[in-house]
Simulated scan of single mutants.
Amino acid sequence: MAKRAAHRLAAVERSATVALLDRVQQLRATGAALVDLSRGEPDFVTPGEVTEAAVAALRAGRTHYSPSRGLPALREAIAAKLSADNGIVVGAADGVLVTPSAKLALYAALTSLLDPGDEVVIPSPGWVSYAAMVSLAGAAPVPALLDPATGFRITEGVIEAAVTPATRVLLLNSPNNPTGRMTDAAELDAVLTVARRHDLVIISDEIYEHIRYDDRPHLSPAAYFLENTLTVNGFSKSHAMTGWRLGYLAGPADLVSAALKVQEHSVSCAATFTQIAGTTALEDSRPAVEEMLSAYTARRALLVEGLNSLPGVTCARPEGSFYAFPDISGTGVPDGSDFAEWMLDDAGVVMTPGPAFGAGGHAHVRLSFAASENELTQALERMDKALRGR
């Protein structure tokens, strides 16, 4: 049998971040002392009240299937959160789908929307899995190339230039991974203008919504264009619940119901006791979220100041998320992949190469400050020694 895998997989590489994690684990197994700033998850523990809610649910025997749409109590809590925090009004009964991870919510949305030959416009740099998910759905990812010189701002012209008659979806991520940028009012207006002009569906990935700085407002496209917008969010980043695998999709009933079919015929539902914990997270864990944000704010200052003191490195302050995305073009090793490999081999500092996030990231690396201040200080000292020793 000559054909061993689907042809569409030829356009899909392994996840760069997962592959990097594998290499880090291999190096640590040999005794290498690494400082890992590649992590895409909080280094905090899940809030205690959330864990206790899950334990109580387990002891009460809540270990069976839930409705595929999700437990009614959690869907109601999500709908209330969207209305209060985001200005998004959806019905808990038919406008919310609880999923085992925000990643699955994205995949279900794309799979339910796309046919072969369709295209998805993705502002670039963007998260490593966006383009792969589009390809897995049988469609074509089209990057809208953002200019590092403008701070990766989204403009109507940049988005419009990527649109063709085959474009079906426009994917937006704010706060952005990897750049740390947040979409402002002018950028959102540009996105909405193009989406309305071409009748595009917007998928808005808002997983880092609660991690933002300097009182910067979070803007949700669904508050202004609900009929054509699917909002993706979850609990991993805001509540340190990455391993719990809990997210959600919200939007027009017909689009959510289409994504429901993907869930019903794949994973069926999110774990029942995890959903009970998620309800507690939305209703009772705001202080814990704010405590994490306070720590991230201090770490952001430490890392950005330190990066800007390194020879040949410049770094803008991230407006949201827990990532810095410095420009390393002045170091003498201007390619982000080469720079990250050098820092791993010579300094023992793990970072994610900017090119993994697509065009526009070639002269950058991503460093996570979901790490202790001691780890950040160690990483900066090691990088400084390597750069000054060239």
Rank of each mutant, 00 (worst) to 15 (best):
G243P: 03
E381S: 09
E187Y: 09
R62I: 13
A340I: 07
T63L: 15
F369G: 12
G278D: 06
L34H: 02
A53R: 06
H64C: 06
R245E: 09
L172C: 02
I211F: 06
D43L: 03
A131E: 13
P67T: 12
P47E: 03
E187A: 08
T229G: 00
S129L: 15
R62N: 10
L303D: 01
A298E: 10
P353Y: 00
S309T: 13
M292I: 08
E305Q: 11
L303P: 08
R59K: 11
M241D: 01
A379G: 15
R28Q: 10
D345N: 12
A92V: 07
A340N: 13
G180Q: 13
V365M: 01
G87P: 05
A301C: 05
V191W: 04
A19C: 10
R75N: 14
R212F: 00
E41G: 04
A137N: 03
D384W: 09
S129W: 15
H265E: 14
G126F: 15
A370S: 13
V262C: 00
F322C: 05
V45P: 09
K385V: 15
V120M: 10
P217C: 04
L367F: 11
L97Q: 03
G358H: 01
L97C: 08
G320N: 02
E209N: 06
E290S: 04
A57H: 08
A223F: 02
G234T: 06
L188D: 10
P141R: 00
L71M: 15
E319M: 14
E319Y: 05
R390Y: 05
T229C: 03
I203E: 00
R388H: 09
G91A: 06
A195S: 05
R245N: 08
V134S: 13
A2Q: 01
L192P: 01
V304C: 11
K237G: 03
A11V: 06
D384L: 15
L113T: 01
L255C: 12
Y130E: 01
E206F: 15
L192E: 06
R181D: 06
T229R: 04
N177T: 08
D345A: 12
V12M: 11
A222I: 05
Y224F: 03
G332W: 10
D345C: 05
G151F: 09
T352M: 12
G91N: 11
E76N: 08
L136D: 14
L136I: 14
A29H: 08
E305M: 10
A379W: 11
Q25C: 01
R390E: 01
R14N: 02
L367W: 13
F322P: 02
L302R: 13
L200W: 07
H198D: 05
S135N: 12
A19R: 10
G157K: 06
V313P: 05
A301T: 13
S204M: 07
P67K: 15
A161S: 07
I154T: 12
V333P: 01
L113E: 01
A277K: 11
G354C: 12
V121M: 06
P217G: 04
V12Q: 03
R8P: 03
E341V: 10
L172I: 10
D346N: 14
D345H: 10
A29N: 09
F339Q: 00
T352A: 12
L226H: 07
D36P: 05
